[in-house]
Computed example of a mutant assay.
Amino acid sequence: MIEKAVSSYKENGLSHLVAKGPRYLLNQMLSMLVSLPIIDHIFFWYSTRDLEGRMKEEQNLSDILDTTGTYFDPQGEYRGAGAYKSLQPIQTREEISEMAERAKSNQPSTVIEIGSAKGGTAYIWSRYLDTAETILCLDMNFNGREKLFDYFASYSGKQIFCLEGNSHADRTKNRVEEILSGEQIDFLYIDGDHSYQGVKSDFEMYKPLMSNEGIIGMHDVENQNTGVPEFWSELEQEYDCEKIPQEGESGVTGLVKINES
């Protein structure tokens, strides 16, 4: 903190340091406080108590989405704290609801998602996909939230693995294959790197691990600010593809049916 203060003084002068210094110092102190194990333990305890109450009340998919909230909806009814503050997914309610229904109808045993964000989609798969036994979550940084994933998955009778790192790395794929132990993926949800090469790499790397009747969900297939639409147009030429919902500039997931004999 002292080094940053000296640097700020040299770059911006004393008046800037005096104006910004107290706020910066307070933010740094709060960050240090929150990172203390005892504080994190309290936040986790509080968050799981709130979440357990919600899970006991959930009867259907609508209830589950009420717990998490969705992208354009108000915050969900779950109220966590610290690193566990929210489970809000980045999909619209219509989009993720339809995707969950399609996934459920396919009766998946093994689920993998690439890009977990706050944990909203992992929560939905854990709570709604009754046949799912194993869920693998791949993300660049879980920010210490893995134990919340473990908590709601275990409560739902699922085994969950949070793999932190680049989904395109060979060591990540090797770890996935190690966990699968010969089992195949029934449902793959891709919502990580949104560049053309990124989404293409995720598809090509994990598609060979899919079961013959598996399905792949791919977020943002109409978001022109990403490289996903370009790759999606290529997939439409080769696979049985469908958009959920049918239109919209954002909040559209592409569904790919493998159907290989």
Score class of each variant (00 low, 15 high):
1 M>C: 09
7 S>P: 00
10 K>A: 15
11 E>T: 14
15 S>Q: 10
17 L>S: 02
21 G>N: 07
22 P>E: 02
23 R>C: 01
32 M>G: 15
32 M>W: 10
34 V>A: 13
39 I>Y: 02
39 I>K: 01
41 H>M: 11
41 H>G: 13
42 I>W: 14
43 F>M: 12
50 D>Y: 02
52 E>I: 04
53 G>C: 08
54 R>T: 07
67 T>H: 07
78 Y>I: 10
81 A>T: 01
83 A>S: 14
86 S>D: 13
86 S>N: 12
93 R>N: 03
107 Q>S: 14
107 Q>V: 10
107 Q>D: 12
107 Q>N: 15
107 Q>I: 10
108 P>D: 05
113 E>L: 04
117 A>W: 11
128 Y>I: 07
130 D>F: 09
132 A>W: 05
133 E>L: 12
134 T>P: 06
145 R>E: 10
148 L>T: 07
158 K>S: 00
159 Q>F: 05
167 S>H: 08
170 D>L: 12
173 K>T: 11
173 K>V: 14
177 E>A: 06
178 E>S: 14
183 E>G: 08
188 L>P: 03
189 Y>M: 11
195 S>H: 05
199 V>F: 02
199 V>G: 00
199 V>K: 00
202 D>K: 08
204 E>D: 11
206 Y>L: 10
206 Y>P: 12
213 E>S: 14
213 E>F: 07
215 I>V: 12
215 I>H: 01
218 M>E: 00
228 V>N: 02
230 E>R: 13
231 F>T: 02
231 F>M: 08
232 W>A: 00
236 E>M: 03
239 Y>L: 04
246 Q>I: 03
248 G>F: 06
253 T>A: 13
255 L>V: 09
257 K>I: 04
258 I>K: 09
